[in-house]
Amino acid sequence: MSRGQGNARRAPVALRLCVAATLFFVITPIILSILAGFVVNYPTGLKSGLTTRWIQEVWAVYGDTLARSIVLAFACLVIAILIGTPCAYALSQIRSRWARALEELLMMPVAVPGLATALALILMYGHFKGFRSSTAFILVGHVLFTLPFLVRTLIPAFANAELRALDEAARTLGANFAQRFLGVLVPAVLPALAAGALMVFTLSIGEFNLTWMLHTPLTRTLPVGLADSYASMRLEIGSAYTVIFIAVVVPTLWALQAGADALQRYFTKNR
């Protein structure tokens, strides 16, 4: 008998009903949207027949947004890790009032509407024309927005007492700061780093508010393209776009999640 078939661990009926209702609530609109991407005429419904025409049209018009979004998300991930990891370590070590205030400040881009952040970025960088019209400009916005999530995930991991002992052990063994940081501290917080990284990637690839303000017609990302298509084209085109979005993002997230889980298992096994 395979695992999990024993009756003893069954959840109560009410709970199972509740889960089923939630799933229905969450998934039905997605299924409808996917379906809409494949029907010839949505108002007529399935009777009008199925087609891949919409998918092909989206691919032709918006194909570039897909690649841009993925590259952007990975670039954002790399930069957030490079900036966020040392930043989180520093904040975890300084227990002063100023460090706490700085930490709060770091959370601002999450609380402030994306539009306001975007406006601030445009005010600051708008006159650098080349930069303003490049994807790098959007990247800055994404890093700003996602960084707090990574830093907030890493601070408790770095502040852990066990980690402090590891750092001291490495010191007594003769390791300088760089050796300790890269060889002992960062590997020890990898599970938290993986969780934070996943969040950064997810937020970046689906980010709309900021990006909508920062983009140009030549630097559209997937969510911005999606909005365009919904606003300016047939409902079926928008839905087909959703199909592509899901087809690309879901497997990517699954792969990242699997990687993060594997790390987590590796580091917590037999602890």
Partner: peptide, 20 residues
């Protein structure tokens, strides 16, 4: 002299072995 340059060895109560 900072700890890393004192050339000492230390054993900790909770081992502090590198888990990775």
């Amino acid at each position: 002299v900072p700890s890393e340059k004192r050339h000492i060895g230390m054993v900790f109560q909770h081992y502090a072995l590198f888990p990775t």
